[in-house]
Amino acid sequence: MTLLGSPALGQAPRTGAGLVRQARAEIMKIRTTNTWWLFLTGVVVFTALALWTNGVSQHYVLHPQLSTMHAAEKAQAIAQAAQARTPAGVAAIATSMMTSGQFSGVLFAMLIAVLAVTNEFAHQTATATFLACPRRTRVILAKLVAAVLFAALFWLASTVIDAVVTPLFLHAQHVSISLTSWIVVRSVLLNLLAFVMWAIFGLGLGTLIPGQIVAVITGLASYLVGYAAVEIIFNLIYLVYRHGWILGAPVIAPAVATRVMITPGRAFAHAPPQWAGLAVMIGYAVVFGAIGVVLTKRRDVT
């Protein structure tokens, strides 16, 4: 074989459309390093942990340890247990169990998306990437496809474990609900939405902040600290201006928006409707992504 007479090149000169080709390349990039399976392992481990803690606490709600309680506590615990055994209560337990691991899983979905972009600069692979595909918007879109697919994979892994454990748990607790009932399926699908939206959020963040460490810290902060911070800020504002909507305004924080988005009905007192949470998340993704694409197109790769 010589350099120029290439059997491989002669065989198939061109395969697939531009975006599909690039998306497959981006999936391959994630697949060919350790990060994804380490994260997947993390998803599995933390889903198991979450199931365990969730299961234990649900068990004590259903079967309160009455002998160790004062009279007042006892009455409250019995009322709680009775409430938990109503159809609505059992459904709540089932949905909670079926979405165990969401808290950490969503984080991993966001991080893999952040890394998909920032790795290009951290490892100086942006040069090779943009030489192979100088249309930078296409590269970002391809990364979006890849990140969403891996987020969905993480969701799937988490959900499969939940789907195995939850029926066993419910059976052991002597309560029953069909896991194919809409109320449960809806939560599981909203859970997928949360994974996907945070992957998109992470991608937007990565294109906006190419510095890997800064982007990861910003992502972690907006997920973990953001929740408490906005809640405190808006509660303080509420103390001055007594308008109910101020208490719903924390939805502008991505972590709060996610909770609003995935909670049927009202996530908390004065919470805006579910669609508002989704709108906020899409807003972040679009705004970050758009600014990120413009910056990426302008950025000199040196």
């Binding site: 061109r14 080709r21 390349a25 391959m28 060919t32 390093t33 090779a128 990437t129 192979a132 595909c133």
Partner: peptide, 21 residues
């Protein structure tokens, strides 16, 4: 200009994918 945790062959295969060969 390649990811340190990726094999040389995979680095090239990714470029093949993106280039469409």
């Amino acid at each position: 200009a390649a990811h340190k945790g990726r094999t040389g062959r995979d680095h090239l295969r990714i470029i093949c994918r993106a280039t469409g060969v």
